[in-house]
Design a protein around this nucleic acid. Sequence first.
DNA 1: CAAATAATTGAACATCGTTCATTTTATACT
DNA 2: AGTATAAAATGAACGATGTTCAATTATTTG
Lengths: 207, 207
Amino acid sequence: MFNYLVNVMKQDEKRGLLKQKVFDAAFQRIQEDGLNGLRARDIAKDAGCSLGSLYNAYQDLDDLILNVNSRVLEMLQEHISSNVGKEQNAEEALVNLAVNYMNFAYLHYNLWTSLFGHTMQDNAPIPDWYTEQTNATFLTLVAPLLKLRPELDEAQAFILVRTLFSAVHGIITINLQERFISIPKDMLEIQLVDFVHTYAEGLKNKA
Amino acid sequence: MFNYLVNVMKQDEKRGLLKQKVFDAAFQRIQEDGLNGLRARDIAKDAGCSLGSLYNAYQDLDDLILNVNSRVLEMLQEHISSNVGKEQNAEEALVNLAVNYMNFAYLHYNLWTSLFGHTMQDNAPIPDWYTEQTNATFLTLVAPLLKLRPELDEAQAFILVRTLFSAVHGIITINLQERFISIPKDMLEIQLVDFVHTYAEGLKNKA
DNA sequence: CAAATAATTGAACATCGTTCATTTTATACT
DNA sequence: AGTATAAAATGAACGATGTTCAATTATTTG
């Protein structure tokens, strides 16, 4: 369907179309089979193009994966900050951020592990645009916190959010790794909420 | 050297010798080049045996890696709990555990990431002996804490240590990942110590 | 010392990511 | 419209990799 449209399209629009189809195929593969199950030939088959066309649309698999992960970062950013900022106090905002993050990890497990489990081939450096986006995602998390705790300057808030996020990330990561004893999701949520409250309690008593 | 000894050895002792040489080669490769740089042919060359002999000594690369990681776990366990338990209070013990953990991550970065970055081929399950050792390592961390906080039962102490360890692990992991802005080691240590104190402060005010 | 058993070998296989000469398709020009 | 030029798509081929296994070599046994 819509094939008749192709005849009217400019060339770079068609290039974009192929790029989009390759992207969608890769995204779906990662979502369903995980990053480890990603194969160039499978992507090409799903996208309905030849193997070589993959490397016309993207430089290599790393490039494609980074683009998928970039989209996942956007999803994470959107998901994690939903319903955050309307709370009465900063502590509840932190709790909600943590619980939202946990829910994203459960809901999009393969996408989430792709974010943190991907490594570049031959120890190639991660491109700047990707690291910048990653760190920019943190900055958006700082915003709602700053609104609730205006006495903090941005640097302090950044450190606070980053420490807390890293800790929450670790608690969820360890629990979801197969090599560790896992507790059920509802128990993890309780543990997570308790952790954030405890940490927030400690923060209060230091000020 | 010691080759003359081989003539006197029983067969299974020689098998152990080969297994040991393969293990040593793999360990060194992971330590120097990281898990991603591990190649079966390189290991065989380093161990001075044929490619096929690798699969005589170990079932596959996963098996070999798990054995290396098992040794790394032992190293980690030993390193992390050194000089812990002689403190005056529980809080200092927790701080020392965290700092020791951080130092191990910096000192043996490739080995440390091998512990958490390895995934089995074809989503094969991690063998029981390995998950049991992983979780047993946690139990040894509980022991010094229990000595200092005898009012906790073992289950409570286990949860406490695990939560704290996971959080510390996350803070270090995020900081050491290339995609995130990193802070220097001494700053990370300050942040880590501050984090544990803050969390411990929160724990006190809940009791 | 010969037969049986075990260990070792490395060529061969399947599967990857990636490349590139060739073919096909689209665009530009007269 | 027809030809020439450029761009895009193709898939066979390459090199690297983990793994296997028939053949070879070494060891133990009777």
